[in-house]
Design a protein around this nucleic acid. Structure first.
Lengths: 186, 186
DNA sequence: CTTCTATGGGACATCAAAGTATCATATGGG
DNA sequence: CCCATATGATACTTTGATGTCCCATAGAAG
């Protein structure tokens, strides 16, 4: 199925703005392969585009996360599936979690809280299963997981890390650090 | 000793631009506690300010890193000192390592490479000491360390993590993951 | 073939931030 | 007191990106 023009613009905006937050609409339009006028036919303004981009990213994240986190698996297994699923969406993750702009928009905040909430639940599960130590703050569990996934995405994009190696690296580093893996499964 | 106006502006620019990359010069000037005119008395243009900010951040990083990495300690000890020293400089780290703008400026690139080079040396040391597993790519060792330190800084700034807890969290997560620490020293 | 819709491209208007110029004022040394 | 230097404040110009408009055209549907 062919992507709609709107979706191509959103995707281009995510990619372009992730690599340079001060991109112009010309750059975004070019990356999307459309004229700037077309961009304005789909979005009222720059601000509207960015807002829809953020909520769109949040929805994509939710769609990717929910089925994984609601299936009956151990938190550790869920984590593994989650990491694999989300690494390719690094830019979406970035905008969903770390967008200090639109601080005020309730719709944006809601999407943000939903995604973060899912992460928090997962991290709580890791604690109750004894995977994560109880004396590590939950906020750190969430923040470092987000960060590690985003870093993996960026490392792939730069060509530093093979896309197929990234998920294992993230899981391993997150669960047992950079030393010898304690549970070299999967 | 009192900070020069120039240094206050640079510091304000680092803080302000780290939290919002599209800050205006008015915002930066206000954060520095000076008038916008004064800002132009010290820097030719916005671009010049940002460039000097980046090189300044790079120099600060170098000054902070070098004495630690050249002293005769194990790589593991160096890492511990490094993390403690750099976390409060999170914003500087951010601009030194992850600034895709000024991609072209040789001076900026040089500073970047110098800092990254130091990190790489340290990571190599961790490998030879057997602290880091040999099958983890060096690029991942560097990238995840950078990002973890930056995340710690941001978590402190948001109020999620206590400043005094952050270094141990980073070291522990980096070396042995979020589970029970293997070597609960220091 | 005609019509409807979406698009590309370019000309133009508008606006916000960058950058410039000037004056009054403070501060510190002589 | 007087001068030099640095600054705050404000008004002004310039610039570059945003936002608007229009027209020619391609493709799909009738």
């Amino acid at each position: 199925m062919k992507l709609t023009t709107r979706d191509r613009i959103i995707a281009a905006a995510i990619q372009t703005l992730a690599s340079n937050p001060v991109s112009t609409l010309d750059e975004i339009a070019e990356a999307a392969g459309v004229g700037r006028a077309t961009l304005y036919r789909h979005f009222e303004s720059r601000k509207a585009l960015i807002k829809e981009m953020i909520t769109d990213a949040g929805q994509k994240m939710e769609v990717a996360i929910l089925p994984i986190l609601t299936c009956p698996l151990s938190a550790e297994k869920k984590l593994a599936k989650l990491v694999r699923a989300i690494i390719p969406m690094g830019a979406s993750l970035h905008f969903t979690v770390y967008e200090p702009l639109h601080h005020d928009d309730p719709e944006v905040i809601e999407g943000h809280d939903k995604v973060i909430g899912q992460f928090k639940d997962l991290c709580r599960g890791l604690k109750t299963e004894g995977i994560a130590s109880p004396d590590v703050p939950e906020a750190w569990l969430v923040a470092s997981l987000d960060m590690m996934i985003f870093t993996a995405w960026e490392s792939i994009r730069r060509g530093d890390i093979a896309a197929n190696d990234a998920p294992d690296l993230v899981l391993r580093t997150y669960l047992s650090g950079i030393g010898a893996a304690r549970n070299p499964q999967s």
